[in-house]
Design a protein around this nucleic acid. Structure first.
Lengths: 142, 142
DNA sequence: TTGCAATTGAGATTTAGTTGCAAAAAGGAG
DNA sequence: CTCCTTTTTGCAACTAAATCTCAATTGCAA
């Protein structure tokens, strides 16, 4: 899984004339060791905790490359910070966000794609991606 | 239109024990003189251009009140900054965002509400609002 | 092995937004 | 209308997130 992602990343870098450095590898590994939404700071702290050295600037510079290469993307914009999530190895999904406890429920609903196509046809628009976020209250916070 | 919005705002403020000040009126007027997405800085500049004085801090403090009172809301999270749009006097709609030119097309599609209800039922979730943003290319940028 | 373009880290810088505080003003009570 | 309490304002200082600068370093292709 990580190996395949690494391959994808290496290809992307090579094709852009960029280099696969130890720092970029650290970021990639850390990103794929998590299985939930994460932000720059999470990755920074985890790499440092393991005793490896990296600067925040490097992580900030690496994230856009991971996005560009199709491995991660900006997640639903929830509370405050910018959060990311994996794309690679995950089906597309959307989010329910609880306004009280902040819990995020992921869901999958194929009819959204159908709707997207119908709407885009109406406006002569070529879709690349969509993000649907439903905010409200989960059953425990209601 | 503005008068009614002002009434709503006055009611909200009174009910919270807050005051309707000339500065808040300026912000309200400026916000409702625009008919598209806007951000704090836009409002600041427009008020200053008209020769009125106001500080950025006051606008930053007023926006949450306008949101709380149901007059405006944070719009689709497009490129960079936080943008707002009117709620009052506008039906709910969602957005197509062109990745190249940044153009925003608003659309209305009732089936999204139906889908939302079906999904929320599935997860025992009580929806308050949703935001659907479709990113892609408009017909001129394709 | 060499050379050059890309990369890194550290800190400076930018940008967006928030906060503390003293002076000013809204607006209800009398 | 005046008084009094509470809120509001503006300014400047501050914070946090992200970006940039630049010298030193390093990958990697030839």
């Amino acid at each position: 899984m990580l190996t395949i992602a690494e391959g994808k990343f290496r290809n992307y870098l090579k094709q852009k004339g960029l280099k696969f450095t130890p720092e970029r590898q650290l970021v990639l590994e850390e990103v794929f060791s998590l299985h939930k939404h994460f932000e720059v700071e999470d990755i920074f702290i985890r790499i440092r905790k393991k005793g490896n050295h990296i600067s925040r600037a490097t992580i900030y510079r690496t994230f856009p490359l991971l996005v560009e290469s199709g491995l991660i993307k900006e997640a639903v914009h929830c509370q405050g910070g910018v959060r990311f999530e994996h794309i690679y190895g995950h089906e597309h999904h959307d989010h329910l966000v609880c306004l009280k406890c902040g819990k995020i429920i992921e869901f999958k609903e194929d009819r959204i794609e159908e709707l997207q196509d119908a709407i885009c046809k109406r406006y002569d628009f070529t879709p690349v991606e969509h993000k649907l976020g439903i905010r409200g209250y989960c059953k425990r916070c209601r």
